[in-house]
Design a protein around this nucleic acid. Structure first.
Lengths: 236, 236
DNA sequence: GTCTATACCTAGATAGAC
DNA sequence: GTCTATCTAGGTATAGAC
């Protein structure tokens, strides 16, 4: 029944397992929660929250350090006590956007391993849970994933080099999921990766038009998208 | 058999029916081809072609007037002989991106009215032709539509105000198509507009991952997308 | 950790010669 | 129609006081 563990509403503490300090090229192995002075961590997060919101709205290049500082309530120069450059802020935001998605995906995988999707319609239910989790990343955990989706394409090359490998590993999770569904016969499509990428594009496009405060819930939206993908609607 | 009239390969002359001079707020009614001195028109197009490519690659804010001028082979100041501002260039690009899509859509509509989609599988064939036409707008008529799709979200408000009505009218064409398919029973989905928007998002996402020079043709891609949408692939 | 002050640069845009 | 030269504003980033 429980398709997802319910994570904190603010992105600040969302990827509790994997992020914490993912700024530059420092420790890639996950640091314990108390490794950084707690005050410093909170300042970083406050900056990232505000910066991600601005970057989602206006794009990276159009968002100035003064804009970010003003949103946080400090002066532009003070930002450089927490981040070495504007690009480092941007990179941290894009990374966190991925962390949110990965955490959501893994949460569904854990439910799956716990047997949450046994039964006749298990494959469709599993896919629905993953779609719901991805939509949750876009709408329920701050502007990080949404900012990632809308601004990655135009990010500078130096940022791409850092982000692409992480993106790829999230994509690989979905590719493995699709492989598994296809292998067990639950899914039968001609071009598996195209089906996956088109579904992905459809999901990500929701940030352009879906209003989570509207009549349709995110559960409903996930239902609709997966039903369409799974059963389709064409007749003659 | 002819699903689309084959338009010129370069976007320069693509929307022959509707654009020509769509820069500022001048004549909205279509001017004859000879209204503008032909030299002036070509200079504008050369600027727009290069600017659209740069804006597709780097985004609007990250593309400078000096970048554009350098790509064209002139100096930045000279651009202001053809356009009043950077925003006017951007607006013209986004408008042309829509014109390309509208022209492609109308071309399919004309084929339809000429009886090109009669027969048993007419509805699916019609949808496939429209999907193919939209993909053609993204990949075959210069960077205008692709630039539109990737940069519209972060465009400044002043640009949004001009572009949104035109976007809406293109969307209305698709909405009417879906209404018609649903009304005649060829399409049976619960949430018609969501099905349309998700399909749209899937199509537009192709610019992020599809390589038209690869093994799969745009015809193949349209087939795959529509087959998935129409017949789906879920089994238990 | 935040401030002020500022260095340095690049941006969009204009003026006037050619 | 394009050029050079230039104006002004705003950008990122740094230095050092508090």
């Amino acid at each position: 029944m429980t398709t997802m563990t319910s994570p904190p509403a603010t992105a600040s503490a969302a990827p509790a397992a994997s992020s914490a300090a993912s700024s530059g090229s420092s420790a890639a192995s996950l640091p314990a929660a108390g490794t950084q002075p707690p005050e410093a961590v909170e300042a970083r997060v406050r900056i990232l929250d505000n910066a991600a919101r601005l970057i989602l709205d206006k794009g990276f290049a159009a968002t100035s350090m003064r804009d970010i500082a003003s949103a946080v309530g400090i002066k532009a120069g003070s930002l450089y006590h927490h981040f070495a450059s504007k690009e480092e802020i941007f990179t941290a935001i894009l990374e966190r956007g991925i962390d949110v998605m990965v955490t959501a995906f893994e949460s569904v995988e854990n439910d799956d391993r716990a047997g949450a999707f046994d039964g006749a319609t298990s494959a469709e239910a599993l896919l629905r849970a993953h779609v719901r989790a991805h939509l949750g990343s876009l709408f329920e955990f701050g502007p990080y994933t949404a900012a990632h989706v809308t601004t990655f394409h135009n990010a500078p090359d130096s940022v791409h080099e850092i982000i692409v490998p992480r993106r790829d590993s999230y994509e690989a999770m979905w590719a493995a999921l699709f492989d598994r569904l296809q292998a067990q016969g639950s899914l039968r499509v001609d071009h598996l990766s195209i089906a996956r990428l088109v579904l992905f594009g459809g999901m990500n496009s929701t940030i352009e038009w879906f209003d989570p405060a509207g009549p349709l819930s995110l559960d409903d939206l996930a239902d609709t998208i997966v039903s369409q993908f799974w059963h389709a609607g064409g007749h003659a």
